[in-house]
Design a protein around this nucleic acid. Structure first.
Length: 813
DNA sequence: TAATTCGCTAGACCGA
DNA sequence: TCGGTCTAGCGAA
């Protein structure tokens, strides 16, 4: 028996003639390999009526195979307050059949839909991305033995396994690849040849092509088939194969081309596995981790960690790494390769390599984050990088619940999902601001408001409405009580995570300050916690969640509304005027008060607050601007602030929205800047006039006029045909391929004065420079973006259109 | 196979 | 033709 410590990379199972056998993929200092655990079997939990019923089930035969359960065992686990039995099967397929039959008989089942491999990770609290320590026995298999390996004669079997901490990247090879293909009239995966391919790792950066001119940086191969074979060979050297949209493009493309060219695209000797993953695909590989950096970017976009209009590699390179990257369009790719023009080809080679490089960089930069999430949730890196935030929270809860002997609630039926969705939970409180220009503003906010409320009030589905008399004081304003005697699952997990995050954050800061070390792993650890902590409240109110709890989610927001409103009242009592507040923030007008007064006030509030809750000072601002809505009243969720150093913070305004053109956004920013930093509205008017003149002249470049909108559904599914839908329809009629998820960039052209805006909308790529409706851009873009700001300063629409301030018209201003 | 609610604005749509 | 209502999108927290 050998003791082995190795990096845990993947989990799967295979069926032999008798059993589903679990296997894990690990990498040690020398090699990577599968290890089998023959002692672990698929199971679910069930509540039986009595011993007789158990006996009956033991004697039953299920399905066409007439199989019986492997065993039924008592457990320490509890579901809905009742003890459950573990019903164990030999094969996953047996479990799948039996769970239906149990339902038909009327036996309550739990965790019957947890995949076998996930089950293994939860039960053993293993952490992919971390290490495992195993006792291994090498079993020589021979014909006739029940467990037979596929290829070798020796199989490593696990006798014991546990998680141990280790340093991840030490021995894993990460490499990216990227393809450039010929563009035909219509796009279809694998229909046209691959023209060029690049690979990028620490050790090797290469670009391959064939049948064109050889230029610098390119390795010339004989034909496409050799290119496919070469790329296949190269990527087989990596442990982590990184792509950008390889789930839907590069991998399926390689496979199709390999088939066509009568060669093989095999990873570790096996075909790639394309799995359905929601609306798109996920590509799994044998004994390799496929990291699709595009999925990583999508997730970062969803969690608000990055914010780019498009998620192509050019935008990512610029926004995330601050490096400009040139785009080479499909038609240019065709042209460069076909003509063999050295200059064009060199540009293409560079582009192809940069694609791989940026892809590789995304993986290198963000893998530490996903490794930490993998550890927290006990999921493989491949799954984590493709997970939604609700899945992460649920995986974490299932893992933690199992450790505590708690069985997870079942997923809701569609009917319940519908009811839940139709009854939304009352959310946050937003105070109507005071419109106008304000001086000396202090912004306060609660640190991790929702998580801290969950902890402070012990909000959890199991602590709901207990019978204790002494818990009666812990009742939310919407009438739900929570036990104060026994800590709930949610508060316990969240408190541990919150404390851990604070610790990591201060460790990270200390290391940076004292040693000048930017410890990315420490940073990733706290970041992973932040992402999950921020998602817990949303999960409680998410209709498909196992632990959905209307009462809990509703209590969280009820308390939150209470805390923010109390803070506002308290501030007013202390002599502050409260300018604005949203969910967890309070804007104070300092008037004659000092920063010290604000600090004192904050401390006072913190003394009253529960221990885990904290009101913090976000910052002090020299000036701030709030505007009046079109229909009257001050607008919430839109404001601009400037601090002592002159840093501008623009929130909610058109400037931060992608569905407004640049000309309008930049004009608005300039106006805000002039008003806030220089107090110079006259100069702002001049600037607006200048923009209007440029628009009138017809010389405004079209990139300043493009409006970005996401096509959220198929064009035929819209009830109301807005400009972006109209533009999309026209483009589709011209042969452009667009669909759900396409980012549209359109322009309102000059065409016919009477035509509707939609009639005049065209995708940017089909519009000539200078073809734009100046009147639309003045009246519907630039003016609306600046008018409400200027109105707060006493300027009218006419002042902006005619220049300067019209005397007499608003002499009161 | 999808974290939540609150809020603003534009432009189409529709009936008087 | 007008004005109210509805659809749609995106951002704040």
């Amino acid at each position: 028996m050998a003791k082995i410590t190795a990096l845990l990379l993947d989990v799967s199972y295979e069926d032999d003639s008798v059993n589903s056998v679990l296997k894990i993929f690990v990498k040690d200092k020398k090699e990577s390999y599968w290890v089998f655990d023959t002692n672990f079997h698929p199971y679910f939990y069930a509540i039986f009526y009595d011993e007789k019923e158990i006996e009956k089930i033991r004697g039953m035969n299920f399905g066409e195979e007439k199989f019986s359960v492997l065993e039924i065992k008592e457990t320490r686990m509890v579901a809905q307050g009742k003890a459950v039995h573990k019903v164990v099967f030999k094969k996953v397929s047996h479990l799948v059949q039996a769970r239906k039959d149990f339902h038909d008989i009327g036996i309550k089942r739990f965790e019957y839909d947890v995949p076998f491999s996930k089950r293994y990770l939860f039960d053993n609290a293993l952490e992919p991305g971390n290490f495992v320590e195993m006792e291994i026995e090498e079993i020589k298999t021979s014909k006739g033995k029940i467990y037979e390996t596929k290829k070798g004669e020796v199989r490593r079997e696990i006798k014991s396994i546990k998680k141990v901490d280790g340093d991840f990247f030490e021995n894993a090879v990460v490499g990216a690849f990227d393809l450039e293909t010929w563009s035909g009239k219509k796009f279809e995966v694998g229909a046209e040849p691959i023209l060029m391919a690049s690979i990028f790792s620490d050790d090797e950066q290469k670009v391959y092509s064939y049948e064109t001119k050889k230029v610098k940086g390119m390795e010339m191969l004989d034909n496409e088939r050799e290119l496919v074979d070469t790329v296949t060979k190269k990527i087989n050297e990596f442990d982590f194969i990184v792509t950008y949209n390889g789930d839907n493009f590069d991998f399926p493309y390689m496979k199709k081309r390999a088939d066509k060219l009568k060669t093989k695209f095999l990873i570790n000797g096996e075909e790639i596995r394309v799995k359905r993953h929601g609306l798109d695909n996920a590509v799994e590989l044998e004994g390799k981790q496929h990291i699709d950096a595009y999925q990583i970017m999508k997730l970062l976009q969803r969690t608000g960690s990055v914010n780019t209009v498009k998620l192509d590699l050019e935008s990512v390179s610029e926004k995330v790494f601050g490096v400009y990257k040139e785009k080479v369009f499909p038609s240019e790719i065709n042209d460069a390769w076909k003509t063999g023009d050295a200059k064009k080809l060199t540009r293409l080679v560079d582009y192809n390599l940069k694609d791989s490089e940026v892809t590789y960089k995304i993986a290198k930069d963000f893998l530490p984050l996903f490794i930490e999430i993998s550890k927290l949730t006990s999921q493989t890196l491949a799954d984590t990088t493709r997970a939604t935030t609700s899945q992460m929270v649920e995986d974490l809860l299932m893992k933690e619940a199992h450790l505590r002997g708690v069985v997870a609630p079942n997923k809701p039926h569609e009917g319940d999902v519908k009811t839940r969705t139709e009854n939304p939970i009352k959310g946050a409180f937003v105070k109507e601001p005071l419109a106008g220009l304000h001086e000396q503003i202090a912004v306060l906010d609660f640190a991790s408001l929702y998580p801290s409320i969950i902890i402070s009030h012990n909000i959890s589905p199991e602590t709901l409405n207990c019978a204790h008399a002494e818990c009666k004081k812990n009742v939310s304003s919407d009438g739900t009580g929570f036990c104060t005697k026994e800590k709930g699952l949610f508060p316990e997990i969240i408190e541990r995570m919150l404390k851990q995050r604070l610790k990591l954050k201060s460790e990270y800061k200390k290391k940076k300050k004292e040693k000048g070390i930017d410890d990315r792993v420490l940073f990733a650890k706290q970041w992973a916690l932040k992402i999950i902590l921020n998602s817990v409240y949303g999960y409680l109110g998410y209709a498909r969640a196992r632990w959905y709890s209307r009462e809990c989610a509703s209590a969280v927001t009820a308390w939150a509304r209470g805390y923010i409103q109390d803070t506002i009242k308290h501030a007013e009592k202390e002599g502050f005027k409260v300018l604005y507040g949203d969910t967890d923030s309070t804007f104070l007008l300092m008037g004659k008060k000092t920063k010290g007064d604000v600090e004192e006030f904050t401390e006072k509030v913190n003394k009253i607050l529960p221990e885990t809750m904290e009101l913090e000072i976000d910052g002090f601002y020299k000036r701030g601007l709030f505007v009046t809505k079109r229909e009257g009243g001050a607008a919430k969720k839109r404001y601009a602030l400037i601090d002592e150093k002159g840093n501008l913070k623009i929130v909610g305004f058109e400037y931060v929205r992608r569905d407004w053109c640049n000309a309008a956004k930049e004009t608005q920013k300039k106006v805000i800047e002039l008003v806030l930093s220089q107090g110079n509205p006259a100069e702002a008017v001049k600037f607006v006039r200048k923009t209007i003149e440029e628009l009138k002249s017809g010389n405004m470049p079209k990139k300043e006029l493009a409006i970005m909108t996401l096509l959220q559904r198929e064009p035929k599914d819209y009830d109301s045909i807005g400009p972006h839908v109209a533009a999309a329809e026209k483009a589709i009629a011209r042969g452009k391929q667009l669909g759900v998820g396409s980012m549209l960039s359109f322009i309102i052209t000059k065409w016919n004065e009477k035509a509707s805006i939609s009639d005049k909308a065209e995708l940017e790529e089909f519009v000539e420079e200078g073809n734009y409706d100046a009147n639309y851009y003045i009246e519907n873009q630039v003016l609306p973006a600046v008018i409400r700001i200027m109105q707060e300063l006493g300027y009218s629409r006419e002042d902006l259109l005619q220049g300067g301030k019209q005397t007499g018209l608003s002499a009161w201003g």
